[in-house]
């Protein structure tokens, strides 16, 4: 057991209400074995714990993270967060419903991210999929979705939210207090729409009503939605 453990260095420290695992050099298969061996060896210590793992630059797919989570749950340990500097792993973790950063800490990626071609102070993410119930995405910049946002999904953006599809879930634009933020969608029928500190519940649409693209923003201290008219 000890020689497996040495293959990849595993460091464990307590953070807030979880155990943060950081890994040394080595591929994921070895790292996974090392973590599991460590947990197994000190099972009474780990039992019932929430674990956050910093996988560094390793790119992990759903099958790898999913089976790691299942192995941990066999040992009565909950995988709560996966921290990574790669987009692939972050995306996988997000899709599996795992946290991708510890509360109150910025990810390393953001610290070293080079200045991109975007306008300074603004950045955005693009999601090209149907966002289903239970899926939540949070981003400090803008969020664009190409696809539907179904009821039960949540989008929380520091900036604007653009949905090229039907918006039926909960959306919060300008979440850190930006009153200039706006939300637009091809079909704007969210459960609830929030801009900065304003909350609006759109009226129920009649069955069979033909919807057109709309844009919602704050005007006169109220959230208003109006049809998007390209001629103007």
């Amino acid at each position: 057991m000890s020689d497996i453990e040495q293959k990849v260095r595993v460091e464990i420290k307590g953070v807030q209400n979880a155990l943060l695992v950081t890994l040394g050099e080595g591929d994921w298969a070895d790292a996974e074995r090392s973590i599991l061996a460590r947990v197994e060896a000190q099972n009474s210590f780990f039992k019932g714990a929430r674990m956050a793992v910093d996988v560094g630059e390793r790119s992990l797919r759903a099958a790898e993270l999913g089976s790691f989570r299942d192995h941990l749950s066999d040992l009565d340990v909950t995988l709560w967060a996966v921290l990574s500097s790669t987009d692939v792993t972050e995306e996988t973790a997000r899709r599996l419903g795992l946290a991708t950063r510890l509360p109150g800490t910025a990810t390393r990626k953001q610290k070293i991210a080079p200045v991109s071609t975007e306008f300074s102070g603004e950045s955005g993410i693009l999601l090209r999929k149907t966002m289903r119930s239970g899926f939540k995405v949070t981003h400090p910049g803008h969020i664009t979705v190409i696809g539907d946002v179904n009821a039960g999904a949540e989008i929380i953006a520091g900036g604007d939210v653009v949905v090229w599809g039907r918006l039926r879930g909960m959306v919060h634009a300008g979440a850190d207090g930006n009153h200039q933020a706006m939300v637009c969608a091809l079909e704007l029928t969210p459960m609830q729409l929030r801009i900065a500190d304003k909350i609006a519940v759109p009226p129920r649409r009649k069955k069979g009503e033909v919807l057109q693209p709309e844009i919602a923003r704050i005007a006169n201290d109220q959230v208003v939605a109006e049809p998007w008219n390209f001629k103007e």
Partner: peptide, 15 residues
């Protein structure tokens, strides 16, 4: 239907 939507999302996430 709402719960089915959630399940479909989870099935997709697990590939």
């Amino acid at each position: 239907v709402r719960d089915a939507d959630r399940i479909i999302g989870l099935v997709e996430a697990e590939e």
